[in-house]
């Protein structure tokens, strides 16, 4: 560890390697710029300026303008809000559903586990993107639809993860001790099994966030996700795809925003996994 990395380590004592710290800082920048979009954006969000169509990056429009004259930087800043909201909502719904079912399955065992895990297997048997696409086609396109169709394919992974961790926690002596004290099963799950099962889930959440953003971008790209005039990175890429050879900035900058955010989430997730698993720790 070099001295120039030490301020980062002081800021992020739980993140042991510089790469992960870099991911955390990058993510913080993305989140902050998205949150502060109304104050940071140089132009109003939806203000088409037909006379300023497809202007290349310049002092007036740092990242250029799109095909109806809207500032690309402004839409990327606001688009971050939509993409991050989708990621948080999908992971929230998936984690709450998946972890609840998984912890119950892992702790209860027997037929309860069998029923929950077989239902989970049914969902896992479908290719995720195909299932999302099929549902998105049936439902009305929009942000809520994106959240729903991705969450439907995402929760089973959390169920599997939480079930395996909870099954292991359920055999620990402190859980046996609680049983022997007559603590009711729901309380044992809430007090002991759930909190001790969360660490790998948190790591998985940070690893999955990038994947959710990419999937939502893919759905928007296919016209099944966010719709105009919503600012969303995947939608921006989809709308700019035909302009790539002539007006590269329309599609490149939102694409880079997706790439950077997915990269930041993944790097942070890897770092968390290493920090919390001594067998994978960076030496």
């Amino acid at each position: 560890m070099t001295t120039d990395a030490q301020p980062l380590r002081r800021l992020l004592p739980r993140v042991p390697d510089r790469f992960a710290a870099f991911g955390a800082v990058l993510l913080a920048v993305v989140v902050l710029t998205a949150l502060l979009a109304p104050w940071l954006a140089p132009y109003p969000l939806d203000e088409p300026r037909p006379l300023e169509r497809l202007l290349p990056p310049s002092g007036a429009h740092w990242l250029g303008t799109d095909q109806v004259g809207r500032d690309v930087l402004t839409r990327i800043l606001y688009g971050g809000r939509t993409s991050l909201f989708i990621a948080v909502a999908v992971l929230g719904v998936s984690a709450v559903t998946g972890v609840t079912l998984g912890v119950v399955a892992g702790y209860a065992g027997g037929w309860v586990r069998d029923v929950i895990m077989r239902v989970t297997d049914v969902f896992l048997a479908f290719p995720a993107l195909l299932l999302s696409l099929a549902l998105a086609i049936v439902l009305q396109p929009g942000v809520n639809t994106v959240i729903l169709v991705i969450a439907v394919t995402w929760w089973p992974w959390y169920t599997r993860l939480a079930a395996s961790v909870a099954a292991s926690i359920a055999t620990r002596p402190y859980v046996d001790a609680a049983r022997c004290l007559g603590v009711p099963a729901p309380l044992i799950v809430v007090r002991h099994v759930l909190p001790n099962s969360l660490t790998p889930v948190l790591v998985q959440l940070s690893l999955d966030a990038g994947g959710v953003i990419l999937t939502s971008a893919a759905l928007s790209y296919l016209g099944l996700g966010a719709q105009e005039p919503t600012a969303e990175w995947g939608l921006m890429v989809q709308q700019g795809q035909t302009l790539f050879t002539t007006n590269w900035w329309v599609v490149t900058f939102p694409g880079l925003a997706i790439l950077v955010t997915a990269f930041a989430f993944n790097v942070l997730g890897e770092g968390l996994r290493n920090a919390l698993d001594p067998r994978r720790a960076v030496r």
Partner: peptide, 8 residues
């Protein structure tokens, strides 16, 4: 001695 919940 390990029979205590590590988080509690």
């Amino acid at each position: 001695a390990e029979a205590l919940d590590p988080r509690m």
